[in-house]
Design a protein around this nucleic acid. Structure first.
Lengths: 239, 239
DNA sequence: CAAACCAATCTGGTTAACCAATTTCAGAAG
DNA sequence: CTTCTGAAATTGGTTAACCAGATTGGTTTG
């Protein structure tokens, strides 16, 4: 267990090292957008790492849109300019794993928007899925069972109905961590869950009636009680 | 060029196919959190795909927190419950590439929050970086040069100062696409850029003075002019 | 009978060999 | 001298072999 964690962070460290090396290389050689990076074999030898490690790092930078590799041709620098790229690389290198507080903060931010967009854009199909999610949640709660998952599914369904792929993706990214932390800290007891039924229904109704302002209001309320339970305080500003 | 694109989307398609297969397997075998998936070799044979393709798919699901693979042991189902997992898998399978509109929408959402948090939490170090970014932007614009990159760097610096890793990451993810699209559609002309100097400075001052409300207001103004130029309309609601 | 042990086996991860498409450039053709 | 050609070298991607650690099941031992 301990060992596994060590090797994983170790692995991340060498990946960051590789990215730092690539950054240096680009800066040193004054590589510009469209220029080709040296081949993977050459770089892996130069940096003293395995080709697969190097490939992973390149793929990460590809994910962030900084590099761009073409089969049988080479890895190229994306068309975003040297200055922006250097800034991004610095950020990527300094980024750390988000804590629970960051996650919740981001989740609230996203959901106050997705619920608004969902009210504006929801299709009848979206509405059907939302209803199913809400029913599954209610059934589970009334049976006295834990319904964290069903809760999250309802919220994910809202994200889907928002019609914004980016926000949907971001919600998906933070959801598992949220679930894990909620279960770890036993955030939702049964009273809270029962209250949740009503709140969910009100949110659903607002989306159904295509009333974005009301939907946002109801979501605020939903999060406020959650916050109160979670932190035993209500001094956290939501806006 | 054409071929490359085809193979890339093709590659994504088989990855989605694999994920769909995994989903079916989990459902069919009623696998629960903590259960072990069959070995990679077995699955690759069963699905009729190469092991490397399968590994990529697994890594993607690991990114979304659904799976969890331990070296020399196996790939395990994360602790998020069957129902939530199935819903997430469905979302992952249906997700499409975000369009420009989604990106801008999400960017505005994120930035109206990061600028507020930055005003609340910025350190002196953050302030220094922000000042440098703003100066670089001004220098470039006054020289009559394109300054899209410097613009974005200022905004990324705000995200960093917000102290929220999630939002910082998300900004990094959408930034390259934004840059590409801005340059493609020639969003920023020189008049716009000159106006941007003042707007940036006002945002900076609000952050420096730790006035979150004002910072948000100034950011709104910044985006409004951007929107007007971008879409030749001002009927888009920002809130 | 239960606990300790050990070797055979299975695991994800890593490395090296291979592939097909691309690029390059010497040299032939005009 | 320029242009075309085609074979060799180079490229990222893919496959197969290999590795070290974990698991497992039977055997031994107290």
């Amino acid at each position: 267990m301990k060992l596994e964690i060590i090797t994983k962070t170790e692995n991340q460290d060498i990946q960051k090292g590789i990215i730092a090396n690539i950054r240096e290389l680009i800066s040193y050689k004054n590589l510009e957008p469209g220029d080709k990076l040296p081949s993977e074999r050459m770089l892996s030898e130069k940096f003293g790492v395995s080709r697969s490690n190097l490939r992973e790092a390149i793929q990460k930078l590809e994910f962030y849109g900084i590099l761009n590799s073409k089969p049988q041709s080479g890895t190229f620098i994306a068309n975003i300019g040297a200055i922006a790229m250097d800034g991004m690389l610095e950020d990527i290198l300094r980024l750390e794993e988000p804590g629970f507080k960051s996650l919740v903060e981001t989740r609230i931010l996203l959901e106050l928007k997705t619920v608004r967009l969902a009210a504006l854009r929801r299709t009848d199909e979206d509405l059907k899925v939302l209803k199913e999610a809400i029913d599954a949640y209610e059934t589970k709660v009334r049976a006295g069972k834990d319904a964290v998952q069903e809760d999250l599914l309802f919220h994910l369904a809202i994200a889907r109905a928002s019609g914004n792929s980016s926000m949907n993706t971001f919600m998906l990214i933070i959801t598992p961590e949220i679930i894990t932390n909620f279960e770890k800290y036993h955030v939702c007891d049964s009273n809270q869950s029962l209250l949740g039924i009503q709140e969910h229904t009100e949110i659903y109704n607002a989306i159904r009636d295509q009333n974005p302002q009301l939907a946002k209001e109801k979501m605020k309320i939903h999060f406020k009680t959650l916050y109160q339970y979670c932190y035993h305080t209500d001094d956290i500003k939501i806006d």
